[in-house]
Design a binder for these strands. Structure first.
Ligand SMILES: NC(=O)c1ccc[n+]([C@@H]2O[C@H](COP(=O)([O-])OP(=O)(O)OC[C@H]3O[C@@H](n4cnc5c(N)ncnc54)[C@H](O)[C@@H]3O)[C@@H](O)[C@H]2O)c1
Ligand SMILES: NC(=O)c1ccc[n+]([C@@H]2O[C@H](COP(=O)([O-])OP(=O)(O)OC[C@H]3O[C@@H](n4cnc5c(N)ncnc54)[C@H](O)[C@@H]3O)[C@@H](O)[C@H]2O)c1
Lengths: 220, 220
DNA sequence: TTGTGATTGTGAATACTATCACAAATCAGA
DNA sequence: TCTGATTTGTGATAGTATTCACAATCACAA
């Protein structure tokens, strides 16, 4: 486990491998080959082996990888052996749906609490969790030194929510807002943007119409 | 507009630029520089210019880009001048939340219909849209030659939903399921995976703890 | 023990992407 | 009209990522 500089793309794929391994485990499989992982993730087997070889030698020539061992190692690499708690800020349609849907089967994550600023919502239930006042976030993050926050507030309130989280000591954020946020250097923010995915799909679809010679992407 | 092979990464950024331009338009700005776009998207101005130069010369040296013109051109490139309708399959927590939340301000997309197979749900309202039987998808896709489908069905039913969509002639899909799907060559499927984003965030957070010398990502 | 078939890990080659840095073009003001 | 301050578009370069292809290794059966 040396790993100087690893690309985000590789980390994404490791997460994917881990998910496949959990599934394989459920199906009772005890070994898996790079080719199987590759086909489940839509990439080449060489890419799988290359990704894993960055961190060590986890396989056995001739047979493949032990499912349990590889999963443990991947979780060690990702840091998800003991995953941090996740909180949601913004108890609107999206926030509540995420809370209700939950994070079962995603490797140990779970939503610990949901917050809002609307006094009319505070105290009401979202699934089985009471909606708490956004002012309480400060305390909750202090209690859980490490926490990931999901921002699902009204359009336009994204920066305010982010600032509140940062002030409370949060270092990792997943945002569903579409505004460009001002993010300090030491905070990691990632985005979920349905409309960008739609743009990518539209572009691909309309391009194929014009040029049916399926050139797919120049590179994944 | 030559563009032989363009990476998905570039397309994603173009989508991002388009979003920034819509915002700039709302704010009444009529020109924008590559540096402004860059700072809103968290990349370098050279990258912005490089991306745009793939498709033509849209700017004016010394001043920048005309907001309206560039937006029109980006939409032409993305194929979103007249965006395809979007449908949702699976009227559970996530599907309904997406429907209710809508796609306002995302460049013309809108959810046209939502489908489910649960007879207890069919006919009920999801926001203002009636939940329709999944059997009707066939007709709806025939009517709208081009359509993007969002899959938000129960875990385990993803492949069934995808197969139904493909049979109905759908070519572009955005899936919220976490299962590895078997996808034919001519169908484009993209995924929204909160748990992968959480893994990336966790990895980054835990890595910084061990090595506070902030090496961020090796790229992007 | 030896042979057979499968699979890993990786050097080398290829392909792709980002960054640098500057000439050419534009504008505003003297 | 001329000057200086900007900003674009892009050749050239540096840096990353992916693919190829194969020696090394292992499981197992004869
Ligand atoms: N990224 C995507 O793919 C995607 C998809 C759909 C919606 N969205 C976005 O998700 C966000 C939420 O959408 P929604 O339909 O759930 O909105 P909503 O209006 O239903 O809910 C927003 C909630 O946030 C609360 N809120 C507002 N400001 C807050 C603050 N500063 N702190 C805490 N809570 C606050 C409001 O009281 C409200 O309950 C919107 O920004 C929307 O644009 C994103
Ligand atoms: N990708 C993510 O980030 C993310 C986040 C949360 C949930 N999810 C996933 O989203 C999916 C939906 O979650 P949810 O909480 O809304 O589930 P849910 O159980 O609330 O709703 C699922 C709905 O799908 C319907 N359905 C089942 N099979 C169907 C079929 N073949 N055709 C049409 N409709 C069908 C069910 O009747 C139900 O109404 C799940 O797979 C979940 O794992 C993904």
């Amino acid at each position: 486990m040396i790993a100087e500089k690893v690309s985000e793309k590789t980390i994404r794929r490791l997460s994917h491998y881990a998910r496949c391994l959990r599934l394989a485990k459920l199906k009772g499989e005890s070994i898996v080959t790079s080719r199987q992982l590759a086909s489940n993730c839509g990439i080449s087997s060489a890419a799988v082996r290359r990704d894993l070889s960055i961190y060590g030698e986890f396989g056995k020539q001739g047979s493949g990888y032990n499912v349990d061992d590889l999963l443990v190692n991947l979780e060690k690499i990702l840091g998800t052996t003991d995953p941090p708690p996740v909180i949601i800020i913004g108890a609107g349609s999206i926030g509540c749906a995420l809370m209700v849907s939950g994070l079962n089967g995603t490797g140990g994550y779970s939503y610990e609490a949901i917050f809002d600023i609307d006094p009319g919502k505070i105290g009401k239930l979202c699934g089985e969790s009471p909606i708490r006042s956004a002012e309480e976030i400060h305390g909750v993050i202090k209690d859980n030194h490490e926490v990931i926050a999901v921002i699902a507030v009204t359009r336009g309130a994204g920066q305010a929510a982010l600032d509140l989280l940062i002030q409370a000591g949060c270092k990792a954020v997943l945002s569903f807002t579409l505004e460009p946020l001002k993010v300090p250097e030491d905070i990691e923010v990632r985005y979920v943007e349905v409309s960008t995915e739609l743009d990518v799909l539209t572009h691909s679809m309309r391009r194929k119409e014009r040029d049916p010679a399926m050139p797919k992407w120049s590179h994944s």
